[in-house]
């Protein structure tokens, strides 16, 4: 009861912060909507990366620190192979590479560490991160590479009759949103309607019980890491087309950490909604809160969007320790 009340208070505070620029006249309605849309679209991209974290954690209890490195590796594979073949063929080849990578990780890293403490597995994925980062740059190079999806970057103006100056949106942001939405629908169908998807859910619920009824854990791990690889591929292609493919996109994965903290480590809807909250929150904070903070504390600049995302996530943790949609832990004492 008390938890619900605190959650209501938190949402009320966030909502007040969200509409404060409008109410106080700090922003016109058109610009406010633009920032909101910008945040939502950035949030969708964060959700894409967060999905990879959630898939693996849900199925194996491993927090895969290497998800960002997988995004970079997949994007590098697509970009470099697309120089020699059509984009669709490069993407298919990259899917195969990500499946091989999943197989290798399962064989060389996960299988020898079965039944070890979760922190050991986390450290192992840290090692995998550095390996994939270095290996990817050694094999594919460390320059900036292009992925051309054929979408124009020129902005489009909409709702000019409603808002003064109209609302500016980008076609590539819209395409990224559509790709993310499609991926979520496909994943939901996979988990709900297929035999393998149900097996994955069974493993997520209880490893030992799943094993006892004949679900092979090792095969499930290969499947789930492959799936995370495909999600990384989609995220990598979307981010790569937007920013150019180079090392920095692996660091975008750090943006997904507050998303999974906020949404819950085991929830796909949590990754989506968490991404949207973080995206909108950080953009609103950077545009409307940062200038006030700079004046109040006499800062020479100081971008706040990176750390504000974590502040937002921690605020939610105070009220809901498992995140918005995370599984509640009830331990017998």
């Amino acid at each position: 009861m008390k938890k619900n009340r605190n959650l209501m208070i938190l949402f009320a505070v966030l909502l007040a912060g969200l509409i404060a620029p409008l109410v106080t006249g700090a922003s016109g309605a058109g610009f406010w909507v633009e920032v909101l849309l910008g945040g939502l679209m950035a949030g969708v991209l964060y959700s894409l990366v967060a999905l990879g974290f959630v898939l693996i954690f849900k199925a194996s209890g491993v927090f895969n620190f290497a998800q960002g490195a997988m995004v970079l590796f997949a994007a590098l594979s697509v970009a470099r192979m697309a120089e020699k073949m059509p984009l669709w063929a490069a993407m298919l080849m990259a899917v195969a590479i990500m499946v091989v990578l999943a197989f290798v990780i399962e064989r060389l890293v996960l299988r020898p560490l079965v039944n070890q403490d979760p922190v050991v597995l986390l450290m192992a994925t840290l090692g995998v991160t550095y390996f994939i980062d270095g290996f990817g740059q050694t094999v594919w190079g460390s320059d900036i590479y292009e992925i051309d999806l054929g979408i124009a970057r020129e902005p489009v103006m909409i709702l000019q009759s409603v808002f003064d100056g109209g609302i500016l949106i980008n076609k590539d942001d819209v395409a990224a949103t559509a790709a993310a939405a499609l991926l979520v629908i496909l994943l939901a169908l996979f988990f709900q309607k297929t035999k393998t998807g149900r097996a994955l859910r069974a493993v997520a619920d209880d490893h030992l019980a799943a094993q006892s009824i004949g679900i092979p854990l090792n095969r499930i791990w290969v499947i789930v890491w492959s799936l995370a690889g495909v999600v990384a591929l989609v995220a990598g292609v979307v981010w790569g087309a937007k920013l150019g493919v180079q090392f920095s996109i692996s660091q975008v994965a750090l943006k997904a950490l507050p998303v999974v903290i906020l949404g819950g480590f085991t929830s796909i809807p949590g990754a989506i909604i968490g991404g949207l909250i973080i995206g909108v929150g950080e953009k609103m904070a950077e545009v409307f809160l940062a200038p006030i903070a700079v004046k109040a504390f006499d800062l020479a600049g100081g971008g706040i969007e990176n750390w504000f995302a974590y502040v937002l996530a921690l605020l939610f943790l105070l009220v809901l320790p498992e995140g918005l949609f995370g599984e509640k832990h009830i331990d017998r004492v």
């Binding site: 920013l243 975008v252 020479a300 600049g301 100081g302």
Partner: peptide, 16 residues
């Protein structure tokens, strides 16, 4: 003054 945090891949808010 519009700062961009390292490494600079997230600039949506800046350009808005």
């Amino acid at each position: 003054l519009l700062p961009v945090t390292h490494p600079g891949v997230e600039q949506k808010a800046t350009w808005l």
